[in-house]
Nucleic acid binder design. Sequence first.
RNA 1: GCGUCGGUGGCAGAGCGGUCAAUUGCACUAGACUGUAAAUCUAGCGCCCUUUGGGCUACGGAGGUUCGAAUCCUCCCCGGCGCA
Length: 399
Amino acid sequence: MKFTVEKKSQNSLARAGKIETAHGVIETPAFVPVATQAAFKGVMPEVAKAVGTQVIFANTFHLHLSPGEAVVKLAGGIHKFMNWSGPIMTDSGGFQVFSLGVAYGQGVSKVAMTPRTVLKRVPQGQSLGLLSASLVKIDDDGVDFRSPRDGSLHRLTPEFSIAIQHDLGADIILVFDECTTPQATDAYQAMALARTHAWAKRSLAEHERLGGDQALYGIVQGGRFPDLRTESAQFMSTLGVDGFAIGGSFNKEDIGVVVALVNKQLPFDRPRHLLGIGEVEDIFAGVASGVDTFDCVTPTRLGRHGTVETKEGRLHLISNQFATDFQPIETDCACPTCQHYTRAYLSHLFRSKEMLSTTLASTHNLFFFNSLMAQIRQAILHDALDAFRQQFLARYLPR
RNA sequence: GCGUCGGUGGCAGAGCGGUCAAUUGCACUAGACUGUAAAUCUAGCGCCCUUUGGGCUACGGAGGUUCGAAUCCUCCCCGGCGCA
């Protein structure tokens, strides 16, 4: 993998660049759609590609459970297996420490929600930290997972995660980490961070032992705490990895602040990925804070659940108001969905629970995020990011 | 015509004397969704009032029994099935 910065923004940390991999070039900033189980939910890879997807994000834990890395390896690697010839990243399973752990059954997001939403979601009299039902047990050596599919027990360690990722064969792989909840105390975050750093070292050692030409990203953690984030960024900077991912939990309001703090310390000449962040305003904040790539489930999950993105904000297509709205999602959108289908038809498909609803809405959303990134990239290249951000959000945010 | 079983909120379908404005599913309405446990989840869903509360109208229709009825009785209307 080779990374080149083509243009650095004058008045922000933003940069436009190029990540060259064995499976092609990623022009950054780029959106990285998530295909957890080596599949975009509801969208064919060739369609995802046609709407501008450059690189995708699959998951070690899920692919280990099914079909198993041996099968993927036997198929000739994940690219061949799933018919995606472009660059692929794999997550290490670190997010499942969170999603199947403290977040399991709690409706808790790694991005701290507004107080109003939290109050609505946490059952009375229960404290967030002590809720049961976790499928995860963490120790210093690794993590025990219960499969959400069948309850079977699985153990991931840094070494095992890296070994699996080598078998899967993605272009960019990630160290095994612990994604923490925003509800965790700073004491817990510090402890988890020390563990994540130890795991990063072990991940790198295993990666080097196995050889090969995959790129390995370290993961910066530290939750919402600036001192921990700084410590983590400095640790990762000296580790000798090919690039960086920024993970863990955030406060919605200051994602940009924390990310900027981290990126100021990370080496300029290596790529930075912001894990799991993908709402429009957060992407702008991330880019301005020096992030090169973003993965997120937003386009496909929202699309599957009936919500589409537009330049004027989100539309919940199932809503009654679209029943006889015979215009496309966006009149000026060039995506295949908007070329041929109306809001009324999509609304009908969602009500009828037709699978095509997922496909058409997700396709539009993928196009939306990919073209947003392309525009952001152009803006950076022309030193006009601030203006573009302001102009875009002025139209998008008043939902 | 006789017999029999039934008519419950948009639909299906529980309830079978009080704790029933009425279980549940669907439909409907709104909300949520940020390294996917997610084609998912949450909430609302007779009307009115400011409430954890109260009032009103409701279980085909009309009467009746009872302190009290969706639940029991009588008649009527409507439907399924069987026999003529």
